[in-house]
Simulated scan of single mutants.
Amino acid sequence: MTDAVPTELLADRLRRAAEFAAEQDTDVLFLTPGTDLRYLTGFDGASHERLTCLIVPAAGHRAPPALVVPKLEAPGFADVPLEALGIDLLTWTDGEDPYLLVSDLAGGPTRMSVDDGMPARHVLALRDAFPDVPQSLGGPVLRELRMRKDAAEVARLRAAGEAIDRVHARMGEMLRPGRTEAEVGADITAAIVAEGHAEAAFVIVGSGPNGASPHHDVSDRVIEAGDVVVIDIGGPLPDGYNSDCTRTYAVGGEPSAQVKETYAVLQEAQERAVAAVRPGATAASIDDAARTVITEAGHGEHFIHRTGHGIGLDVHEEPYIVGGNELVLEPGMAFSIEPGIYQAGGWGARIEDIVVVTADGVERLNHNPRDLVVL
């Protein structure tokens, strides 16, 4: 339960979700436990084989929202303000058909949407319960709410950024020649929790040639003097909002002139992309700002991923900062700016900050140095 979210705000989110559902031409939205349900109700729990499902009728339908919950799990919703939110609670026990209960409550929809993270076992069972009703993904409904952060959400992301900055500031305690990536990763994991996160969602320690793999994890490779090391780390604070920040380090001595020259290109690309963020710009234009710098310097083939992703209750969510995405940026949208250059078999580098679109520009949520830090 995200008890810091005011009930009035949750009620407003539910109301707007119903309105967006109507705009997306769907009659009812079905959500199982996950970040979408947490966003609308404050409930933080997992989806299991027993069906828990929030039913949100589109605006204009008379039926109120309803929550179908296994009776043995109903106590877990004691702190969710269901009555204040106007949500009817109905329970079921083993041996009963919860999908029949859902179909009764949904009131004969002709169009239905399921949340993007719903387990297939429930998606298929709902399809059987509504054999003549087309299913669509609920992502287009929820993203209209979730990708525009309110002031409270921005404050939470700001706190998450500060927490992960404190971990990067401690990297000299952990990252040094003679240690394995796994050993460094274990220390970083502990530091992430010590600095206020609920857990470490991911820890990438990409040393030497492993740094050229953007989603490398950790390994038993021993870090050597002269290595360039990519450290990409993050996780949720107890309130569920995530951090995500990457810095690149040179370990055990000054890097080569070639590394310095290439890194300077990357640093310029990241600066240009951040500077391009403003209301009215498109997501694609931010990607282009970074990609143009890297391509003109001769490293275009070594920048092998999008420039960024949205962040909030999920580490990766809308909006995606990628070529072809003509989404117009608006105040409150939060996302990463993380160009990278990867020399296969050699080394890699990435710089990542979380930024938020403001009324007249951009705010960075990470503030540690973006230079190639020598440890």
Rank of each mutant, 00 (worst) to 15 (best):
T91A: 06
G95D: 02
E96P: 05
D97M: 07
P98Y: 00
L100Y: 07
V102W: 06
S103T: 12
S103E: 15
D104C: 07
G108M: 10
R111A: 15
M112L: 15
D116F: 04
G117K: 03
G117I: 04
G117E: 07
M118I: 15
P119A: 12
A120D: 15
L124C: 07
L124R: 04
D128F: 06
A129V: 05
F130V: 11
F130G: 14
D132Y: 10
P134K: 12
L137E: 09
L137P: 03
G139H: 13
V141N: 13
V141D: 11
V141E: 10
R143L: 14
E144H: 00
L145E: 04
R148W: 01
K149C: 15
D150L: 06
D150Y: 09
A151D: 00
A151G: 00
A152Q: 10
E153L: 14
A155I: 02
A155F: 04
R156M: 13
R156Y: 00
A160H: 05
G161E: 12
A163L: 10
R170G: 07
R170E: 14
R170K: 11
M171D: 06
G172T: 08
E173V: 00
T180W: 07
T180K: 03
T180G: 09
T180F: 10
E181T: 08
E181F: 12
E183G: 03
V184G: 10
V184M: 12
G185K: 07
A186G: 13
A186K: 11
I188Y: 11
A190S: 15
A190H: 13
A191D: 08
I192M: 01
A194V: 03
A194D: 14
A194G: 11
A194Y: 06
G196C: 08
G196T: 03
H197C: 06
E199T: 02
A200D: 01
I204P: 06
V205F: 04
S207K: 10
G208D: 02
G208S: 05
P209T: 00
N210Q: 02
G211N: 05
A212F: 00
A212S: 09
A212P: 09
H216M: 10
D217P: 02
D217R: 15
V218Y: 04
V218P: 02
S219G: 15
S219A: 13
D220N: 07
R221A: 15
